[in-house]
Each structure stands twice: as C-alpha cells, then as structure tokens.
Design a protein around this nucleic acid. Sequence first.
RNA 1: GGCGCAUUCGUCUAGGGGCCUAGGACGCCGCCCUCUCACGGCGGUAACACGGGUUCAAAUCCCGUAUGCGCUACCA
Length: 585
Amino acid sequence: MTSSGGTAHSVHHRPGLTVSDPSPPEYDVKRPPVSAVSANTAASMPATASSAMGRRTMTPMLTPGRRAAPPRGRGSDVLRARGGPRAARPVSFAAMPPPVRRTITEPARVRFAPSPTGLLHIGGARTALFNWLVARNTGGTFVLRLEDTDRERSTAESEAQIYRAMEWLGLDWDEGPYRQSERDEVYADAVERLKASGAVYASWETDADMDAQRQAAREDKRAPVVRGRRDWTDADLARFRDEGRVPVWRFGVDVGGRTVIDDFVRGEVAFEHAAIEDFVVARSDGTPTYNLAAAVDDHAMGITHAIRGEDHLSNTPKQMMVIRALGGTPPEYAHVPMILGPDKKRLSKRHGAASVEELRDQGYVRDAVINALALLGWSYDDKTTRFTVDELVERFTVARISRSPAVFDLKKLDHINGRYLRTLSDQEFGDALVEWLRHDGFFTRHGDGTEDLVRRTVPSVKRKMTRLNEYETLAGWLFRDLEMQPDAWAVLEGDVKHAIQVVGGGLGRLDALPDWTQDAIKDVLLDQLHIMGSNARDFLEPQRIAITGSTVSTGIYESLALLGRDESLRRYRATMGRLAELWNA
RNA sequence: GGCGCAUUCGUCUAGGGGCCUAGGACGCCGCCCUCUCACGGCGGUAACACGGGUUCAAAUCCCGUAUGCGCUACCA
C-alpha cells in the first residue's frame, strides 16, 4: 500500500495496477460476511453504556509526545478486490482490479468533534455512531471533543444537549470531553512552533486587500486564493505598528505541491496547492482557527482515524499540512456522506424531528434510532436491515460506507421503531412505556397511581403501537372521563335509531353478565350480534364508541375488561342517555 | 467563478465487466386476516442522469455534459 495521505508531490501507485499475479481468478467467492474485524470484538464488546458514560473529568492537555505513537502500519489492512480478478483471458486494461477499499482493523483512536452551536441532529449523531462503532469494533478508544473555538456561537445548553443525546443513544466516550476553549496553550504552543519553523508568517494585509485579491482572481477565473506579502520592509512594518495594525498568522502553502488524501470511503482525492490559499491559522487576537485547532488536536490526541462529514473533505489538505509542518503524520481519513432533509437540502431545524432529543420525545426508542442511523450511508449486505447494537458493533466496517448523500426518511424510522417495540417482552415494553410516559408528564397529568393500569394495558397496545407517543390516543380514554370525540359521535349520530338499538343491546347483555372477563364479554357481545343479525362492524363499532368516545382504541373486549364493570356500564348509560335525548328532540 | 465530491425504484440501498429481462427494505397500490387503527400474510408498482468511448459483453471501466452538494471566513 502506498503511504496514505501521500506527501506532497508523491506519486501513488496501486499495487494492483501491475498485472503480475497469474493466480487463477477466484470466481464465485462470496464476499466474506465481515472483514477480519469481527475476530477481535469479543474482548471489546461491553457494548452497553458502561465505562465512561458521564465521566466528565477533563483530562489535561495532551501533547504529542505524551503517548506512544499509535500503530500506523497498514500491513494488516484488508486488501480486498471484490469479485476477484475480472478476466482469466487476455488481460486488458479494462480488466484491472477495482479500487481497493480498505477497512480499519487495528485498535483505532477516533473522535467525535461537534461544535456546540446547536442541537445534535441526526447527521452529527450518525457521525458519532460511526466513530463509536469503529472504536468498539477494533477495541479502540472513542474521544469526545467539543470544538468551541467560536466563543460567540458556542453555548453551554448546546453542550449539555449533546451529552444528553449521546447518553441516550448509549454512545459512551472513553476520553473527554475536551473543550478546545480550554486548550489555548496547546494551540499557542503549536503556533509558536510553526512560526519558528517558518511555516506560518505574519500577514499584515487588511481585509480590503484580501477581498481585492480574491475578487481579482475570480474575475480572472482563477482560484480565489489569497497570499500575504512576506517581503515587507522594516519601514513598512514600523508603519503598520504605528497604525496599530495587528497581523494574523497565515500558513505559507507550498504552492507547487499537491496533497493526496487516501480516504477510506472515497479513495484517493488530490488537491493542488495552487488552489488553496494561505489560510489563517491564528486570528489577530491570538485565538486559533478551526483548521489549526482541529489539526493540532487530532495530532496531539493521537487520533488515528478521523471519521467525519464530507463537508470537511475540502479542508482536509490544510489540516494535513499543519500536522506535517508540526512534524507529525496526519491521521487517516474517512469522509462520510452528508445526510439531507426530504427536500434534499442540508439538514436543519426546519426538517421536523431532526434532532436526537426530538426523536426521543416523539416516542422513538434508542435501539431503533441506532438501527436507522446505521443504515444511513452504510449497509451490511443486500438483505439485512435489522441489527441489534451488538451486531452493529460486530459487523460495522468503514469499507462499506457509501459515497452518496442520503435523505433521512422518518417513515422508515417508524417502521423500524414499531418492529422493535414488538420484539420486546411485555415487561420490557412496559418499562420502556412507563419511562417514556413519565418523561412526557403522563403521570403528572393522570396521577402516579395509574402506572399499574398502564402496565395492564401493555398486551393490548403493544402490537398496535409504532411510537410511544401514540399511547395517549390509543389508551388515553381509560384515564379520563368519557369524552365523546366529534368524529366518533358523528358515527352514532348518523343513524340514531340503529345506535340506540345496538348500544342498548350491548348494554342489556353486559348488564346481565355475571363474570366480567374478556372472554365472557366477547361471547355475550358476539351472541348479541348474531341475535340482532347485524354485521360485526355495524354492531361492534358503536360499542367501542359508547365507552371510549373514540373511533380509535384498544380492542373492544379488552377495553371493556380494562375499564371494569361499573365504569363500563356507567359509560354505556351515559351514551344511551345522550342518544335518547337526541332521539326525542 | 475555482477546487472537490456525488449521481441505481419516491426514499435507504445491493451491485466492482458476463451471475442483472438489476436484488432487498421503507413507502405506495391491491388482496387476505379483521371490531376501528394497526399488526401479520400474499401479490403488485417503480430505478442504472445524459452522450460518447473501451470491450465479444458495461449499472459496473474511461472521457465529456448535466444536475445536486460541499469547501472556497480572523465559522466550524
């Protein structure tokens, strides 16, 4: 394998491009179910949120020398030419092996580095998940780092929300959270070293100067890059100082070079330096910019693999340059595709349940969300769509991350959520439901004593629910006095005479029923149905409405059993009363 | 404007020259089950962006075009 990342100017060779292997093609070799990674997961599988969850202590500054350099060898990379050699016959160029997709097998030190400037939305959560999966899968380390160098936009609430969302998802981090705002010395030190080596220079130009440069380049159809003058005379400098000008520090890009990223998901991506401007590394107030801080931290924290959104791809060469100028080796990169809203635009608050916490509030459960997130931009094979978290940990590999952006589909999440809920035992479902209802304030509204009743409804609601927030509409009628919903009343009102006959018939039989069990209720109602010669729907639907006031509820027999004899009969009579009133009017 | 990335059913995707008259899942439609809504079962609808090239053979490789997205800040 060539050195990934590639030094500037380096030429990259693909070993496979030289046709030298005469070994017979391995046709029909099914893709190995998983790459070698699963072997070492057993030991690292405490997938349950355990260790570092909530470990909020700040580990002090890390410096490059602090920990042993992580293994960088690629000897263990799985080189996998899918499908094997194409042609056994005359070797033509068209038969060259396909691009190799590597994966990560050695213990990886990865990081999730959100900027606390808003909600953790599903795009960020997905990135966090992928990193976490790689860490757990390889027996590596998951680092959480807050990129809060933008003091204006970073907020404590946002930071807290990120922690809450990650904890809910069970994405426990092993180190951190580090805050860049608390690592000033690290960046200052790095900038000093860059100054000393001449990698950066003071740029005295005004904003107007730079805008003019960019504008000129643009009109010239050239890359809109900016380069500061480095040949000011002493007199110039003296004048600037007199004027009170303060320089920014720019990275002096080696204009003739190029940087190649050997990306895990995109393959080799090359950038000519001529199109990269001398980017600012330290602002005039001395604070670091993103491209400096991110690079310095990845290096200082010994990050071996940077798995992040594709929006960072274009900035990657800058970060690689910084790290190299510091004498380091950049991490390897995997740029995952963006997640878009239904309108194919970048995800934002406008897109409904775009934040992780909103998903929870709407009654989606953790495992379903994880499952859905994992399938956004990643797949295991051509069939499998359900995964437990443990299975994801075992099977995830960056080699199977897709390259194109994905639209997040709530309908699909609904399906996964419902499917997941139905796999739970009644006990587990009850626990999840009660927890969610408590969080939603259900017991505040209906009283703490209702938990027992909620649990008794579980068998009736479980297979009907897709989201936990549907409980209220399905079973809410049980917890309040009879409230006739307009659409339900309309059904009875549509044929008052029939309604009176049918509801009255049901009431008569139930009133005389000796033992109030679901089976007995069912028998007697069905018997009455036959006696009246009515069809099931015409007879049974009014019964539901009579006691629930709704057209949507748990099953009718179950509902009556749950309500209890006295309350059921009371509601029947109330409904009959209203019907009689209407009839007499 | 420059640079980069991407493009398979409405959506998520499988696919890496012949296993593809393109597979799965969600959605949608129909049927069955049925006390509503669901669930479940069965069946159906629907895609290789376009144009060239390479090849006996292209969804797959190459080139171009189009479109979308990203970066292009003293934002991250």
